[in-house]
């Protein structure tokens, strides 16, 4: 014999289940699912390291070198090999002596006599295939003259150029 009392537990069970599922659904859909990768922390660390490396290369070690930094000399003399090696040594060194695995691709941007901005590819340690998650760091560099880079298209005389490095972990 069916009476109306007999379905109370079922109805309440269904109600409780629906409430829990609905809450869970709302909670899961509104809680943003961040993984450490999404939070850009590794980007932040790479960018800081790359900026530091460029800044340190652009700081002379003593006033005895007539105030010219290593980066200024490297660019003026077009020592692309030295740029790559120095930059990689700076970025990859650790205090424990082990070696990190960062790769770079560097370009130089300059303004020509006709007021257009041109690019000169300095160097790279690995080809960029497009799959890397690279960060971009830049440094302004003051040049007295174009020296060995005159042939590339830089104006003679004083100018400011931008060194741009793409940096990624291999």
């Amino acid at each position: 014999m069916v009476n109306s009392d007999g379905q109370l537990f079922t109805i309440e069970g269904i109600a409780a289940g629906l409430i829990m599922l609905l809450t869970a659904y709302i909670v899961v859909s509104t809680t943003s699912m961040y993984t450490p990768g999404d939070t850009h922390i590794s980007d932040m660390q790479l960018e800081q390291l790359g900026s530091d490396a460029l800044r340190m290369m652009n700081t002379p070690n003593s006033t005895a070198e007539s105030g010219q930094s290593m980066l200024q000399n490297i660019i003026k003399n077009k020592e692309t090999e030295r740029f790559r090696e120095t930059f990689l040594t700076f970025c990859n060194s650790t205090t424990a002596g082990s070696y990190d695995n960062l790769q770079l691709s560097a370009d130089l941007y300059y303004r020509t006599g006709t007021n257009t901005v041109n690019k000169y590819h300095l160097t790279h340690s690995r080809n960029l295939t497009g799959g890397e998650h690279a960060v971009r760091v830049t440094e302004w560099v003051h040049l007295n003259d174009c020296n060995n880079l005159c042939g590339v298209g830089l104006r003679p005389g004083v100018q400011t150029v931008l060194v741009e490095v793409l940096l990624w972990r291999d």
Partner: peptide, 12 residues
């Protein structure tokens, strides 16, 4: 039967 729905609320 209301304790079942109460538990549902607590869990939620």
């Amino acid at each position: 039967a209301q304790w079942i729905v109460l538990m549902g609320f607590i869990v939620s």
